[in-house]
């Protein structure tokens, strides 16, 4: 297992694509907070500061794609053959990838939260406001965002193992987040909708895109995402990953 983890790290550090993907998170955060400040956000309102910090969680859409490519990308380039020859126990491969990608997702989340803090500080200073960093709320929002980046990278690994075609896996994930979950949420009603993955991500990262939904508490969102990660990974190990590699 240890050697597989080392090998997975080396896979990440020897190609460029994952780093571009992870760099996209902080850029999104900077742009999003700038947009918030420019569109007349009130820098004296603690709610605006939280909304700015919550951009950290939005960057998780990139760690999701990053995670998907961990497995589906290997099928695309046929490097999965080599991976399974080195580790015929395929469940262990998924375990190693979950470990490495969750860690990389957390690092990306830290970078995004740093970007959120710096960008917010800069705009607030420019507009004559000042940051409220003594409140637990600020750190729970930033920390939740980091955790969301970590969790969605892991969910991506499970999803990419389940849907081994990268284009199909990414399209499914993005369609779910942008479209399907909103409709499913309306059909299920707010009491059930809050258990869905995107609402759980909102709860964890304390972003309130869908203000009408009654979200789970932050820790509840974290547990739900953990459960989704385990469910996807287990489903993959027992279905698609058992298939012949031809």
């Amino acid at each position: 297992m240890q050697s597989m983890i080392r090998s997975e790290f080396r896979k990440l550090t020897t190609v460029r694509a994952p780093w571009l993907l992870l760099a996209a998170g902080p850029l999104l955060v900077v742009a999003g907070i700038t947009g918030l400040a420019e569109s007349g956000g009130n820098v004296h309102d603690p709610g605006t500061q939280r909304a700015a910090f919550a951009h950290t969680g939005l960057a998780a859409v990139f760690t999701l794609v990053f995670g998907i490519l961990a497995v589906a990308g290997e099928y695309r380039h046929s490097t999965i053959t080599d991976t399974y020859l080195s580790s015929p126990r395929r469940g262990r491969v998924v375990g190693a990838k979950l470990t490495v990608y969750a860690l990389a997702g957390a690092v990306a989340g830290l970078a995004s939260s740093g970007a959120a803090l710096a960008t917010t500080a800069a705009w607030w200073a420019a507009r004559g406001g000042h940051l409220h960093l003594s409140a637990a709320d600020a750190w729970l929002t930033l920390g939740g965002g980091v955790a969301a980046n970590c969790a969605l990278a892991a969910i991506g690994v499970g999803l990419g193992a389940l849907i081994r075609n990268p284009a199909a896996a990414i399209a499914t994930a993005l369609a779910w987040f942008a479209l399907i979950e909103g409709i499913a949420g309306q059909l299920l009603g707010p009491a059930l909708a809050r258990w869905l993955p995107f609402y759980a991500t909102e709860a964890l990262s304390r972003s309130s895109l869908s203000a009408t939904a009654r979200l789970l508490p932050q820790w509840g969102g974290a547990l739900m995402l953990l459960a989704y990660t385990a469910a996807f990974a287990a489903a993959a190990v027992f279905t698609t990953l058992r298939r012949d590699v031809t």
């Binding site: 050697s3 080392r6 080396r10 020897t14 190609v15 380039h77 490097t79």
Partner: peptide, 30 residues
């Protein structure tokens, strides 16, 4: 397994952006 069996299959893939030496370093780590 890799200390016992070496294999080359037609469809064994390489990541196009990875350097040859790095491809083998990934394997050596595994």
């Amino acid at each position: 397994p890799r200390r016992v069996v070496g294999a080359m299959l037609e469809s064994t893939g390489f990541h196009p952006g990875r350097r040859a030496r790095d491809h083998l370093r990934v394997r050596a780590a595994a």
